[in-house]
């Protein structure tokens, strides 16, 4: 899985990735979010999921880790443009209560 990071304003960043967020790639996402929030001092993170076609429980765990990391720094982590499988697992696990899917990246900043 390849990650791209786009800095936004003074305290935000957008992470874009493609492929599968799973047992193999989840540790990379956690490391990346930690670097953005704690290293770069950007506590507001958006994860654009448009090009991610599958998320497993480990991937969900990485998103929860990112959310907790961002909130601990006074920010937030929001998710944008999830596909149908991702929406389904968010509902199945009730994680859509804390990781509400947004239709666009811009909406995450509102």
């Amino acid at each position: 899985m390849k990650f791209d990071v786009e800095l936004s304003g003074e305290d935000s960043a957008v992470i874009r990735a493609n492929g599968r967020l799973n047992l193999m790639s989840a540790p990379d996402l956690k490391h990346l979010v930690t670097g953005i929030v704690q290293g770069d001092g950007r506590p507001n993170v958006v994860v654009d999921l448009a090009e991610i076609d599958f998320v497993d429980s480990t991937g969900l765990g990485a998103l929860v880790f990112g959310l907790k990391t961002a909130r601990a720094a006074g920010g937030d982590l929001r998710i944008a443009r999830p596909g149908k499988q991702i929406k389904m697992v968010l509902q199945l696990t009730s994680l859509d209560r804390i990781l509400e899917p947004h239709d666009t990246v811009e909406e995450c900043f509102e």
């Binding site: 480990t58 907790k68 009730s94 804390i98």
Partner: peptide
């Protein structure tokens, strides 16, 4: 069963 919302693991079998 599903763990707490903020748990980072333990969802696999429940899912």
């Amino acid at each position: 069963a599903m763990p707490d919302d903020f748990a980072e693991s333990g969802r696999g079998l429940a899912m």
